[in-house]
């Protein structure tokens, strides 16, 4: 359900910007998704193939750039990537940290002609 609404929004954003520059066709859409934003690439691709044929993005390709989650330790400031159930700072062992990457969710750019 959720991925359908997301795909519609990605398509709307891409088409709006393509029209803004007077493009005839969208070849590629580059999307950035953080690992914490819980979006499934394959589902978005599936809906995109279904929704795009009658738009400027017909035949275009979706590209996903995944961003790994990163935390900044609140005790010692070290930046680290949490692993599965191990979220202790590797330097000072404090648990968790401020999320500094992984929540991204935006259309970065489009390739048009």
């Amino acid at each position: 359900m959720h991925e359908l609404a997301i795909t519609e929004e990605i398509l709307r954003i891409a088409v709006t910007h393509a029209e803004r520059v007077g493009a005839k066709r969208i070849m590629d859409i580059n999307v950035v998704i953080g690992d914490l934003s819980s979006v499934v690439d394959d589902s978005v691709q599936f809906y995109f193939d279904f929704l795009s044929p009658d738009t400027l993005a017909a035949g275009g390709t979706l590209h996903f750039r995944r961003i790994t989650a990163r935390l900044r330790c609140r005790q010692c400031g070290l930046e680290f990537e949490p692993q599965s159930m191990e979220w202790h700072c590797p330097r000072c062992q404090a648990l968790g940290g401020e999320v500094i990457a992984g929540q991204e969710f935006y259309v970065e750019s489009i390739e048009v002609e």
Partner: peptide
Amino acid sequence: MAKVKVVEQI
């Protein structure tokens, strides 16, 4: 082909 910068939250 031209690249168009977007950076728009979904």
